[in-house]
């Protein structure tokens, strides 16, 4: 690889490392910073492309922020670019979390730390509840999805089955439900 190619890969790594270090929360929290850095400053993607990457990130497995980094890195420098951008995206997490985890592990025995985390856990319940409400509003769109939500909630709460099973079964069920719906609609129209 020549020098300019290495430089491109480094720029990708460094730009995404900066974005990763500056955004709290990933996903949609990242969008304004991505727009400024990637669209306006670097010109690596247009607004429309960015919207597309987000839409795809929503309908592919994995972390949305990582998906976006991979898309943009690939567009700039192929597979090595995708790898450089993605590693840049996660690099600050690795450093920051390792430091905090290291510190907290050393102080975990202290009563004051344990008390603080007992309070924090009550807060985490609420943060999770808020996240669930938000997802529920966009994902539960009709009776079928509501029943599916309830069934998975009950199944996961009451059994020790792997979440993978629920995800695979729900995906398959999604296809079946859609097919039934289309079939029902076609029949109704046929009856007219």
């Amino acid at each position: 690889m020549d020098q300019s190619r290495w430089k491109t890969l480094w720029t990708l790594f460094w730009t995404f490392a900066k974005i990763g270090a500056m955004t709290f929360g990933g996903g949609y929290a990242m969008l304004p910073i991505l727009q400024r850095e990637i669209v306006e400053h670097r010109g690596w993607a247009t607004e429309e492309e960015m919207a597309d990457y987000y839409a795809i990130g929503q309908c592919t497995p994995g972390i949305i922020a990582v998906n976006v980094a991979t898309f943009i890195g690939r567009g700039q420098a192929g597979i090595p670019g995708a790898v450089a951008a993605t590693l840049g995206q996660v690099f600050p997490c690795l450093v920051i979390i390792s430091i905090i985890a290291g510190i907290l592990t050393n102080f975990a025995e202290l009563k004051v730390v344990q008390d603080a985390f007992a309070g924090i856990r009550a807060c985490v319940c609420v943060l999770i509840l808020n996240a669930v409400i938000k997802l529920f509003r966009t994902d539960v769109v009709d009776l079928a999805t509501f029943l599916l939500f309830l069934a998975v909630l009950a199944g996961a709460a009451l059994t020790n089955l792997s979440p993978v099973l629920f995800v695979v079964a729900a995906g398959a069920l999604g296809v079946v439900l859609r097919a039934l719906k289309l079939d029902g609609r076609a029949r109704k129209e046929g009856a007219k």
């Binding site: 309908c59 856990r121 985490v124 319940c125 999770i128 509840l129 996240a131 669930v132 997802l135 529920f136 966009t138 994902d139 539960v140 769109v141 999805t145 509501f146 599916l148 939500f149 309830l150 069934a151 998975v152 909630l153 199944g155 996961a156 709460a157 979440p163 629920f166 995800v167 079964a169 729900a170 995906g171 398959a172 069920l173 999604g174 296809v175 439900l177 859609r178 097919a179």
Partner: peptide
């Protein structure tokens, strides 16, 4: 087809998170 798969996946993912929330 992708759309149909995610029609089922999304509420399931929401249910899984809710169940984990219950254990928290």
């Amino acid at each position: 087809a992708v759309d149909a798969v995610f029609y089922g996946l999304r509420p399931a993912s929401c249910g899984l998170i809710a169940a984990a929330g219950l254990s928290v």
